[in-house]
Amino acid sequence: MKPKILVLTCTYCSYAGADMAGVSKIQYPPSAYIVRLICSGREEALFALEALREGFDGVLFTGCHIPYDCHFISGNFKARARVALLKKLLSQLGIEDSRVRLEWISASEGDKFAKVVFEFTRELEEMGSLPKFRKISELGVEEHD
C-alpha cells in the first residue's frame, strides 16, 4: 500500500522548508501532497476531516516553530490547539489519532521535512488505509439475530 499524505504548509516557514528539501535534492517518498497556505493559522480541522473522508491516509500539519517564529505572530498556536482537539475528536470517532500529525519546520530544515515525511509514511503503511466512506443511506440495515 502506498499512503497518501496531505501536507498543509505555511508560506513563510514550512513551505520554504519543503522547498529547501527540494533544492538540496534530499530524497523523500512521493506520498506527500503539499498544499501551501498563507499561515498555519489557516490550517483548519475541516481540511483534515475532508482529506480523510476522501481517501487520504494521513494529514501532516506544519508551521513555524513555537513560540514566536510565526510571521503572523500567533498562527502556530492556533494550529497547535486545533490539532490537539482534532486528535481527540478522531479518537472519539474511532479513527487512529496518529493519522494527524503536527510538526514545526523552519525554512532551513529541509532535512527535517524529508525525515518527517519518511517516518509518517512508514507509520501509515503499518496502519493501513481507512475504509471508503459511503452515504448513510447506502449502509443498509444490520441483521442482528
Binding site: I95, L139, G140
Partner: peptide, 16 residues
C-alpha cells in the same frame, strides 16, 4: 458532518 460515523461501521459491514 464531514465524517458522519465511525469507520468501524464500514469495517463491520464489509465483514458481514
Amino acid at each position: 458532518s464531514t465524517i458522519p460515523y465511525t469507520p468501524e461501521i464500514l469495517k463491520r459491514m464489509e465483514k458481514d
